[in-house]
Design a protein around this nucleic acid. Structure first.
Ligand SMILES: NC(=O)c1ccc[n+]([C@@H]2O[C@H](COP(=O)([O-])OP(=O)(O)OC[C@H]3O[C@@H](n4cnc5c(N)ncnc54)[C@H](O)[C@@H]3O)[C@@H](O)[C@H]2O)c1
Ligand SMILES: NC(=O)c1ccc[n+]([C@@H]2O[C@H](COP(=O)([O-])OP(=O)(O)OC[C@H]3O[C@@H](n4cnc5c(N)ncnc54)[C@H](O)[C@@H]3O)[C@@H](O)[C@H]2O)c1
Lengths: 267, 267
DNA sequence: ATGTCTTTGTGAACGCGTGCACAAAGATGA
DNA sequence: TCATCTTTGTGCACGCGTTCACAAAGACAT
């Protein structure tokens, strides 16, 4: 089962907090922009503003990497770019494979952001024979049967899945069996992988649903008992969505004994 | 994954924890699958396994919504689908606009996951005149000049940005000014928005960099001083990436005084 | 009714992440 | 050399999220 997270073996002294790791790419992007403008140094305050985070948090994040700043001055931009890149492993070349070259997969393959940070698309793989050989973003699509060979020959350890949901677990299993140990999954499915394999997911639908939750709250909580935040013209619009569900207010009570459940959600 | 929050200063007493909200769509998806298979009830243990989370966490999450379970039996699938949908605001119809219909924007427009949960693409908007009127996913692309009018007429409060990074902030400002109060951003930029506006971002490049970090760690930390984690065959492959940076081990020491910084990161 | 068995709902403990606030470090100028 | 000023690095407290563990609730059988 994928859930099996074993406890951390006692004192892990060398680990960088996960939350910090997730922010490093953000800092790196801001620093790269500064570097391109030939800015020599930057203070934690400035950089934090550019990255959209708290400056104390940024300083603490950097403190996990070491003492790379100079008090009274700030951080050397170029040096910090290098240190973060090294910490993230971007000074290496990471060959990746992408499986499922449909609408999304093709868009991803065309995305420049891949190649710009040490990631190299080693292969595009699809199960549709009519697509094999057709170049996407200058790279010919290869057939799924060769997946293991491709991974082996290119030493691939990172895979991207952009297949339909139904095929994702199967593709995942093959990737893992072939030696891939990090997977970025775009299919709306929970992948189960053995220990030692990292999976990250990008899920459009989930993001929208989270936004909808907050949007609904902005619209609804006008007469709330607690503090009434949220002035702004935005709340005005949010209060008038296209169709308001006419659910009885008493629904909050107890559970209806039998099937009085409204039929919602087509799929 | 994707993250990114903006406001939340006040003490929210009546709120569902943010972490819980982020998991509700996951539960909903698993429940919908069960519903389609006509499964009447499900235990927290089963559902947790399907959603890839801890069962205690799932129960606590549901407890924020109310007591919708039956002890000794589990949860009524249909009823729970309805409750979660309602909580997330999915019983409403949410019109959304998508700005920037390029490679990614077109793929997103074609994605079925939008429409399946109450989200309706009200308009596709682009700044390229040669693209205006061309149908994408059956919806004709409209010109950016009409953005305000489109938002107004459709009562749109959720916007998706898939433009190049350089245009994102500008587009964001116009969306917000026109009344949009939730934004899903695919451009690799930090958007600044006024209070009351939620921004979530999906960033491909960041996800890959996080994976690379862990991948590097799996490969490198074999002789670490602390506990030696990570056995597994995956580490074997990870230990042999395409190009290993030949960095001296002593780099961990102090900061080199002058510009000995290697030239990395093309862009 | 009563007992047994299953599963929920939650109290409590713990660890992680965040942000404040400040001492220490170092630059800069007189 | 010394004083001043800026900015880092971090100790500390706090709140959130996770997980354990278990009493209570209810189904079901007898
Ligand atoms: N398109 C989007 O914007 C978007 C957004 C979020 C999530 N997703 C998800 O991403 C996935 C891809 O979406 P899409 O719009 O590109 O779909 P698509 O149908 O256009 O593309 C899917 C591709 O996967 C290939 N494929 C199918 N089975 C395969 C297998 N077993 N092995 C290898 N390749 C296989 C198909 O041949 C096809 O080329 C879906 O799961 C979708 O839900 C898409
Ligand atoms: N393509 C991907 O897979 C991918 C992945 C992650 C992130 N991104 C990001 O998403 C964005 C879009 O990527 P893409 O590959 O689709 O790029 P693209 O160049 O194919 O499409 C960009 C579209 O935005 C339109 N546009 C430009 N300026 C605009 C403006 N001011 N208002 C409205 N529309 C405008 C352009 O006309 C074009 O149609 C980029 O920021 C990219 O970095 C893309």
């Amino acid at each position: 089962m994928a859930t099996g997270r074993t406890h951390r073996p006692a004192t892990r002294s060398r680990g960088i907090p996960e939350a910090t790791v997730a922010r490093l790419p953000l800092y790196l992007r801001a620093l790269t922009a500064l570097s391109e403008r030939s800015v020599p140094t930057v203070s934690s305050e400035e950089l934090a503003a550019a990255a959209g985070v708290n400056s104390a948090k940024l300083r603490k994040d950097f403190s996990y990497l070491g003492s790379y700043g100079t008090r009274g001055v700030g951080y050397d931009v170029e040096y910090l770019v290098y240190q973060i890149s090294r910490e993230l492993g971007l000074t290496q070349d990471w060959p990746i494979v992408m499986v499922g070259i449909g609408n999304l997969g093709a868009a991803l393959a065309n995305y420049g952001g891949f190649a710009s940070r040490g990631f190299r698309v080693a292969a595009l793989i699809d199960a549709d024979p009519s697509m094999v050989g057709k170049p996407v973003a200058g790279i010919p699509v290869q057939y799924i049967d060769d997946l293991e060979k491709i991974i082996e020959e290119n030493g691939v350890s990172i895979g991207v899945i952009a297949t339909p949901a139904g095929a994702a677990q199967q593709v995942c299993d093959r990737l893992v069996a072939a030696g891939v140990s990090s997977i970025l999954n775009f299919a709306p499915t929970v992948l189960s992988v053995p220990d030692g394999v990292d999976v990250r997911k990008v899920d459009l639908s989930i993001e929208l649903q989270i936004l909808a939750f907050h949007e609904q709250r902005k619209a609804g909580e006008d007469g709330g008992v607690g503090g009434a935040d949220l002035p702004s013209a935005a709340a005005v619009r949010a209060a008038a969505p296209a169709a308001v569900a006419a659910s009885p207010a008493s629904t909050a009570g107890r559970k209806g004994p039998d099937g009085d459940v409204p039929a919602v959600m087509p799929a």
